[in-house]
């Protein structure tokens, strides 16, 4: 499986943008940036863990929303807070260029092969209740 764009990119640039708010109170440099950095590392580690279950290649193609939903839920469970889809995508962007990835949708036989709809037999059985 060739997943393009798997290169990790250094995330130094993002760090600056984090402490923009609170201009009046410059944080004591080392004291507050350390835990923040740790939180970021934790976040990234969890995300990478989640990608084991929800492979990034599936974030392109037909299943992408359900995979993204899976990631949102995974992070929500891990950190006990809500993650929006944009937030997850931004996180992913630190590691992957999703747009460069190719889907593996061609592998899905049932979606590349026209087949008439047929209602399963069980629907025609009269159900009580």
């Amino acid at each position: 499986m060739s997943s393009g764009g798997g290169a990790a990119k250094p995330k130094e640039e993002e760090q600056d943008g984090m402490s923009v708010h609170s201009p009046c109170k410059p944080p004591p440099s080392s004291a507050s940036s350390l835990p923040k950095e740790q939180a970021q590392v934790e976040l990234e580690l969890r995300l990478l863990e989640a990608l084991e279950i929800y492979p990034p290649i599936k974030l392109q193609g037909i299943h992408r929303h359900f995979v993204l939903y899976g990631l949102m839920e995974f992070l929500r469970k891990s950190f006990d807070r809500h993650f929006s889809s944009e937030e997850v995508l931004q996180l992913l962007d630190r590691f992957y260029n999703l747009e460069m990835m190719k889907t593996d949708d061609e592998e899905i036989e049932m979606l590349n092969h026209e087949e008439d709809f047929s209602l399963p037999q069980s629907y025609f059985v009269k159900e009580e209740s």
Partner: peptide, 17 residues
């Protein structure tokens, strides 16, 4: 997100199945 997923499936699946 789930609804987007349904929509995406629907568009692809309609002509196919």
């Amino acid at each position: 997100e789930v609804l987007k997923g349904i929509r995406c499936y629907f568009d692809k699946a309609l002509p196919m199945m």
